[in-house]
């Protein structure tokens, strides 16, 4: 209903901007405006990507990063939504725990990096832990807010029509909070993707974050830039995938009125 037809100009313009930027980049590099060691040219970066693909390193790093994000994020979803439901439904629990949740929500997840390494060493676990810390608290808070703002009339209708207990949860509470929860999932998945790069730079031996850190240490700025491009593109893909959740017919109401 709100879907608007994109005009041909709207399709062409973003492509034109990308091509224009690449040309400008190539022009600056070819003219040696900046020293070559600090400003790679696009062709070298392209070759870097191809090299990483052929050696299989890009794929390995990608899988490592995606695994960590998925594990940490799913853990946060599986624990965060139920806790949000409880806090949203019980005023006492909310009064007791919400200040603490708010504190951790406002504490940068990167501040946990030292403890992540002390507790979990190097590898998957510290990254998963950091992603969990980044996603869990926003998910809890958004779920609490969504539950607390469910219009009373829905529960009355549910009662009138004999929905109780588990049915009330599955057929009223969860569908009623779904649009808001999906929105916070999109936001926190983006956050998780940001955090995994930082976590791998410091506490990783592989992954896309480690790859760009390694490229810097090896003074391979072509690989550094190719890593950055891949990280950015995957971030966009993750958001597009989660955006599809907002297209589910039974949650459209949350975005259209």
């Amino acid at each position: 209903m709100t879907e608007t037809k994109r005009t041909s100009g709207e399709r062409v313009l973003p492509v034109a901007v990308v091509i224009g930027s690449l040309l400008l980049w190539w022009g600056l590099a070819a003219a040696h405006v900046f020293p070559e060691s600090l400003f790679p040219d696009p062709l070298a970066v392209g070759k870097g990507v191809v090299e990483e693909v052929i050696t299989g390193r890009l794929f390995n790093d990608l899988v490592a990063s995606l695994f960590r994000v998925t594990a940490g994020f799913l853990l946060a979803v599986v624990l965060g939504i139920p806790l949000g439901l409880v806090l949203g439904s019980y005023g006492r629990a909310r009064a007791a725990l919400l200040p603490a949740v708010n504190f951790f929500r406002n504490l940068s997840p990167l501040a946990w990096i030292p403890f992540a390494i002390l507790w979990f060493g190097i590898g998957d676990s510290p990254a998963v832990f950091l992603i969990f810390m980044a996603s869990f608290f926003p998910i809890v808070l958004a779920t609490v807010a969504a539950v607390a703002t469910i219009p009373m009339v829905y529960f009355r209708v549910a009662h009138d029509y004999g929905l109780t207990g588990g049915e009330m949860l599955m057929r009223v509470t969860l569908p009623a909070i779904a649009p808001q929860v999906i929105t916070v999932l999109r936001v926190t998945a983006g956050l998780a993707w940001v955090v995994v790069v930082a976590a791998e730079m410091i506490a990783g031996r592989d992954g896309l974050g480690f790859a760009i850190w390694d490229a810097r240490n090896g003074l391979r700025i072509d690989l550094l830039v190719s890593g950055m491009i891949v990280i950015g593109l995957i971030g966009v893909v993750i958001d597009r995938l989660l955006f599809r959740l907002t297209r589910i017919p039974s949650v459209r109401w949350g975005y259209e009125r």
């Binding site: 219009p151 009339v153 829905y154 009355r156 209708v157 009138d160 569908p175 009125r257």
Partner: peptide, 14 residues
């Protein structure tokens, strides 16, 4: 007995 509400009594997700 069943109640008919002023507005928004329908479940928007159904």
């Amino acid at each position: 007995a069943r109640m008919v509400y002023q507005h928004d009594g329908l479940f928007p997700w159904l």
